[in-house]
Design a protein around this nucleic acid. Structure first.
Lengths: 362, 362
DNA sequence: TTGTAGGCGTTATCAA
DNA sequence: TTGATAACGCCTACAA
């Protein structure tokens, strides 16, 4: 049998096509009796409305686009998975795209999505982007990395970072280094700010050079974390940080690796705290103390903002979700150090690559 | 200005709508001059053909669906990413869906995809599935986990496993355990077969009970790997395997963790070999010796089979891609053992959960 | 090569 | 509440 259309159903049910349409779309003004009859016929004929014809008229695709820089990042993978679940719950499907963290490609993807007439777009902006050329009239929400001209939802990166570093301070650490994320990432900047919030108020820098910020920039991935960790740790013990706050779990894990390569025991000789709360963070050796972002909450909020049209965050006033610090095995109080001449430490105390917070490159 | 349609373009260019359509679709029978003029107008007006109207007529959506069990598995994440890249290269977009490894949900997703009129579907079947109810007339290709009634492309799991275990044997190991994947996974079965291929021909079992297969089943994730590893290693040294072949990198990494928890040094006291070649495998401590699957090749092959319609693997004759064994730091020759009474080992030599290869549950 | 017109399967409008 | 009918934007014979 040829696939049946709405008119087949109408005819078989003895009603007009309009009525069938109303039944399909749950329009209130249909008698219960008629509705039942029509639905019976629909089931009988195995009728499935054609999404194209439908969208052509209604201008609604029930499709949303999601663009992320890199699915290899487990954090984004979790985001995509959660978003898909939420979208499905709202009766929508998801077109997935990767920007490979490239602004040009990202712009192209956005255009494609607009061409597809998606109902909305969720985007994790590519690094370095601070403004997005959104197709006119297309709901867009930025997730995780916030930008200036688009509504956003994200974790409270700054607050989370603050908690993490504060925790290290309470543990007794003073020489706390920070592996910052890429300079172009808004979330990386916020985490760095959180770090500086705490370290900056740590006491009198004249008295104790150790408490100066020690920051090195790196990409978010494992390997960059390892490189940054190696850089930070490859110096005499007296100059070496006793704790490292990494801007991502992947960096932190790379850091663990670096410490291991250098024969530095964690947490005995070094405390490491990560950020994100990817599943793996709980399975490393030692298990990673980290700041967990409530990913599924964030994804759901983004989706329902996009689809529900209510609760849409104002531009410039993003919705922020609190993070949770989980204390695991990679952090501990610093060990007693052999006497050292503090004057030798000045060099190490100098801020490194601190221009990360410099002017934005529009 | 209201968004312009094909007739606006036609009018503005002084041609008929049919001609414009022909230009859009690269139909050969259009004068170069006319084509140029039309294209100029298209650009001038910023005209974008409506995909719905277009698909409604042509029955082609330029959309493909991809359904995987779990994006949290970095291996699948890489697959999705590669597939998206390949699909984009073919002018298609990707609708992404998660089955959460649940057959019912998977079936529902397939139905949805069919309803969307996608041009084809790539699926990593959920565990335990050996046959797929494919929507009639919809090109479908199974990736990684092969099923009986659908064309498939995957890595040569069995060959890869064989190489890995063979490598351990050449290193001098005899008591080689295998952490098998879930019983329902075809790829897990193939890897187990590869393991058995080698261990089964290892010599005279009557003479040397050590060479009997030692298999324990587990899910593919970290935690299951850790549990399985703990189970395998929590016995007297003399009965303990000297090498473990895990069916996934995640399992292997969990295993590393278990070994560490039990104070067993790797590779000095235990060799571990994984499977998949996820990025993380190169960043663990120690770096993991593993079998790398050529994911992007596999994804590309799947896409071009689906879209190119040529090179479509025959049902029952899947396209297999060779894996590469990379030797890293988690494997080494077994260390000299203290004398032990071999007769005590018989129990450990018994196959465990070997029914993994039993009859399929259709 | 180009123009014309019919129809794809729905939804929306307007009467009844 | 229901029915009839005109769009929706495009493709594709078929005719010129």
């Amino acid at each position: 049998m040829a696939k049946s259309g709405i008119r087949d159903v109408a005819e078989r049910a003895g009603v007009a096509v309009g009525t069938v349409s109303r039944v399909i779309n749950d329009h209130p003004s249909v008698t219960a009796e008629v509705r039942a009859r029509v639905q019976a016929v629909i089931k009988e004929l195995g009728y499935r409305p054609d999404p194209f014809a439908r969208s052509m008229r209604s201008k609604i695709s029930r499709l949303i686009g999601i663009v992320i820089p890199d699915l290899t990042n487990p954090f984004f993978a979790e985001l995509v998975q959660s978003a898909e679940r939420a979208a499905t719950a709202h009766g929508h499907n998801v077109i997935f795209m990767t920007s490979f963290d490239d602004a040009a490609r990202e712009a192209d993807r956005l255009t494609q999505l607009a061409g597809r007439r998606v109902d909305g777009i969720i985007i994790v902006p590519s690094t370095g982007l601070h403004t997005i050329k959104a197709p006119k009239g297309l709901p867009l929400v930025a997730v995780d990395r916030l930008v200036d001209n688009v509504p956003g939802v994200a974790a409270d990166h700054r607050g989370g970072a603050r908690n993490a570093v504060d925790y290290l301070v309470r543990l007794g650490h003073r020489r706390i280094a920070c592996i910052a994320g890429p300079a172009g990432s808004a979330s990386a900047q916020d985490r760095l700010r959180g770090y500086l919030d705490v370290v900056g108020t740590l006491g009198d820098r004249q008295q104790d050079p150790d408490i100066a910020p020690l920051v090195v920039g790196a990409a978010f991935d494992y390997e960059s974390g390892r490189a940054a960790g190696t850089y930070l740790l490859a110096r005499p013990r007296a100059e070496r940080p006793t704790a490292i706050f990494a801007s991502s779990d992947q960096q932190a894990i790379g850091c663990l690796r670096a410490a291991n390569d250098l024969g530095i025991p964690v947490p005995a000789g070094l405390s490491v705290v990560g950020f994100d709360g990817i599943p793996l963070s709980n399975l490393t050796t030692p298990r990673l103390t980290t700041v967990i972002q409530p990913m599924s909450l964030i994804a759901e909020a983004a989706i329902s903002a996009l689809l529900g049209q209510r609760d849409m965050p104002k531009i410039g006033k993003p919705h922020l979700f609190a993070c949770e610090l989980v204390e695991r095995e990679s952090s501990a109080p610093p060990v007693q150090e052999p006497d050292v001449d503090n004057r030798l430490l000045t060099a190490a105390g100098e801020p490194l690559g601190i221009d990360l917070l410099g002017t934005r490159t529009e």
